[in-house]
């Protein structure tokens, strides 16, 4: 994971489920290109998360409401967001499997924060300092909590890398 992440903000409301992030009607999902293209396709927003012209998202940081990623356990949901270009989600709360997937896949940094933003944030420049544990919008800076025992997993780039490190170190058979 990069330490400094900068890019434009997108906004999702409360209870944005994994069905709208990567709908079942597209299963089996095909290659990365195809998965990126359908990221958040059933989430109504103007502009949409993915630019249909490029098949990629101009947004790097998603601000979200409650229970972001609720519903199905499909990992294609965080993968689709990441493949489209998102690197960080700052949500008031996450659904637990989606949160696990973000940590374990190592592709999206899930930050739990009761932020004050709504649709008005869309398009604004955001900077996230991972090790400094803060994000910045304009001149406003917000400090987020540490990841506790999950940090070694995030720092390793995901659970599989972490497992391989532990196997190599003789901690796991």
């Amino acid at each position: 994971m990069e330490n400094i992440i900068t890019g434009k903000a997108f906004y999702c409301g409360d209870f944005v489920d994994t069905d709208v992030m990567s709908p079942g009607r597209f299963e089996p999902f095909g290659d990365d290109e195809a998965l990126a293209r359908i990221a958040l396709i059933d989430y109504e927003a103007n502009p949409p998360f993915v630019d249909p012209a490029t098949g990629r998202s101009p947004f790097t940081v998603i601000f979200a409401g409650e229970e972001f990623g609720c519903g199905s356990s499909r990992e294609t949901a965080p993968m689709a967001l990441a493949l489209a270009g998102a690197k960080v989600v700052i949500a008031r709360s996450f659904a637990r499997i989606f949160f696990r997937n973000c940590v374990n896949l190592g592709v999206i940094l899930p930050i739990i924060y009761d932020h004050p933003y709504d649709e008005g944030i869309v398009g604004q420049e955001v900077t996230v300092n991972v090790e400094g544990r803060y994000f910045q919008v304009g001149d406003k800076q917000y400090t987020f909590g540490d990841f506790g025992p999950l940090w070694p997993i995030i720092n390793a780039g995901g659970l599989t890398n972490y497992t391989k490190q532990r196997i190599a170190a003789g901690e796991l058979a």
Partner: peptide, 17 residues
């Protein structure tokens, strides 16, 4: 329920956080 990355590791180690 868990994601595929969880299960990938469970398949190999039988353990999960």
């Amino acid at each position: 329920g868990v994601g595929v990355e969880d299960m990938l590791n469970v398949f190999r180690t039988g353990k999960l956080w």
